[in-house]
């Protein structure tokens, strides 16, 4: 790994450990390998959002050209959000692409991702299905996001309506995650979700 990249990550790592966000527990950063090319991030779901109470894991890959090019980041925790792929965890955020600036750090990136959870941007979506629901049916979107936070990110808010519908499909012998995706994508219409899976 290029000297400047490793040196900077080490420095950032030291600083982030002293930051108030890490001390306050809203973000975390850990090492994955010893050559500082891959890290593991963690952000807490912001309060007053469907993600509140959840913990979201992130895969952070540091390119050799860092900080001249952005780190490659994706969600490891499954999340229902218009700017994150519900399948791969890929993120659509300008600063991770063409708006990257060399003075940005892992700390500012993690905070930006946290802000993205507070304010989704459906007009620049990563997941078209989620973005459509976000725009057209905000109540269902919030419910779905809260349910996913509960199931995948350890959020405390149980959504009974979702759980019971997923259970209905489980009883039909459908895989749990597959059932959840189908129901989420079809606005929790049990009939259409089942049709889609068996159609």
């Amino acid at each position: 790994m290029a000297n400047i990249a490793a040196k900077r990550i080490k420095r950032e790592f030291k600083e982030i450990m002293k930051s108030e966000e890490v001390i306050g527990g809203s973000i975390k950063l850990g090492l994955v390998n010893e050559n500082w090319t891959e890290l593991k991030g963690e952000i807490a779901g912001p309060v007053d959002t469907p993600y509140e109470g959840g913990t979201f894991l992130l895969e952070i890959k540091v390119p050799e050209t860092y900080p001249f090019n952005p780190p490659k980041i994706r969600f490891l925790t499954k999340i229902w959000h218009p700017n994150v792929s519900s399948v791969t965890g890929a993120i659509c955020l300008d600063i991770l692409k063409d708006q990257w600036a060399a003075a940005l750090t892992l700390r500012t990136v993690l905070l930006s991702l946290q802000a993205l959870l507070s304010a989704g941007e459906p007009n620049d979506p990563q997941d078209a299905v989620v973005a459509k629901q976000f725009r057209e049916n905000p109540r269902l979107f919030t419910m779905t996001a809260r349910h996913w936070t509960n199931v995948y990110a350890g959020g405390p808010n149980i959504v009974h309506e979702c759980n019971s519908k997923v259970q209905r499909m489980l009883d039909m012998g459908i895989d749990e995650h597959q059932a959840r995706v189908a129901l989420s994508s079809y606005d929790w219409d049990l009939e259409r979700a089942t049709e889609q899976l068996f159609g």
Partner: peptide
Amino acid sequence: MAETSQARASPS
């Protein structure tokens, strides 16, 4: 490695 680094940079 991960643990030592974290410990060294520990805010405590």
